[in-house]
């Protein structure tokens, strides 16, 4: 990981689509969480999904990462159909995510949480682990070094060995982001990465997201409620309302879109 600042234009953004969601519907009994939602995320971009509460944003992320299976429709990741694969399989093909309400391993230290992000890369077997010396130790040292770079990148040095459950909320959010980064994914889904943060913490988080995007060329799909943050951070935005995708475009286009304005502010009667 190269820690030197690079210029924003050096970003490897291209027009190739990494995630394509096509006519995805998701129903829970009579409730339609998503109805014929289509969108595409391009390689290297920061793509935001916004919308009022209950619009289906998290449901959509859950469909993409495999927690939910869409009732109908297709989702492809780098061209491969993934709508019916398990979360672990999808994670293996380079997609990781964070959660709205944090899903950290509370009793474990920051380092252990980050190391678990690299779990898929650990290959030694039970017997080797029982012996420890040799392959398992080499593996532990190697991954520890890699995780230490994330500790440095996200400025988590001070809480390296603390059990994460007792840390401040903003720090826990950062650790969860770090755990998602640790698996060296191509795409990260962030579910409200800045919810409940102070203004300063939000700024730092934006910096981390942008740096990871520029230096590591990670594609981001994020859900966020802070419109100021969204407008400044995103390359493109999709707007969901009551399970429907009502708009998609650049921040400037979205801000001017009448459908979006009516969804957020209501319509004049």
């Amino acid at each position: 990981m190269n820690m030197l600042p690079t210029i924003r234009t050096g970003r490897g953004r291209s027009d190739s689509q990494v995630i394509v969601v096509e006519n995805v519907s998701l129903r829970f009994g009579g409730l339609a969480a998503l109805t014929n939602v289509s969108l595409d995320v391009r390689e290297g971009e920061i793509y935001s999904i916004i919308g009022p509460n209950g619009a289906g944003k998290t449901s959509l992320l859950n469909c993409i990462n495999g927690f939910y299976t869409p009732t109908s429709g297709r989702i492809t990741l780098g061209g491969d159909e993934i709508a019916r694969l398990s979360p672990a399989t999808i994670a293996r093909s380079g997609l990781s995510r964070t959660f709205q309400n944090l899903a950290l391993f509370k009793a474990l230290s920051t380092i252990d949480n980050l190391l678990l992000g690299r779990n898929l890369k650990m290959r030694t077997n039970f017997l080797q682990a029982a012996v420890f010396l040799g392959p398992t130790k080499r593996e532990e040292v190697k991954h520890r070094a890699a995780v230490e770079e994330i500790v440095h990148f996200l400025q988590l040095e001070a809480v390296r060995d603390e059990p994460v459950g007792q840390l401040p909320y903003g720090t826990q959010k950062r650790i969860e982001f770090g755990r998602a980064l640790a698996s060296e994914p191509k795409i990260i889904l962030l579910d409200e990465p800045m919810a409940g943060m102070t203004q300063r913490e939000k700024m730092e988080m934006c910096d981390f997201i942008r740096s990871a995007n520029e230096m590591l060329n990670v594609t981001f799909v994020l859900i966020e409620h802070d419109i100021g943050v969204i407008m400044g951070l995103s390359d493109r935005i999709a707007v969901l309302d009551r399970g429907l995708r009502i708009a998609e475009g650049t921040p400037r286009e979205i801000a001017a879109d009448p459908a979006v304005i009516s969804a957020y502010l209501g319509v004049e009667h």
Binding site: N65, A103, F105, A107, L108, L115, N119, F132, E140
Partner: peptide, 28 residues
């Protein structure tokens, strides 16, 4: 001690703390 300080022990603890997240880390 060896099992618990290796990734095997870490996987056990991950399952203990949060099964959903553990599954997402590729842990069976």
């Amino acid at each position: 001690l060896n099992l618990t300080r290796s990734h095997i022990g870490r996987q056990w603890m991950a399952v203990r703390d949060n099964e959903t997240a553990a599954r997402l880390m590729g842990i069976s």
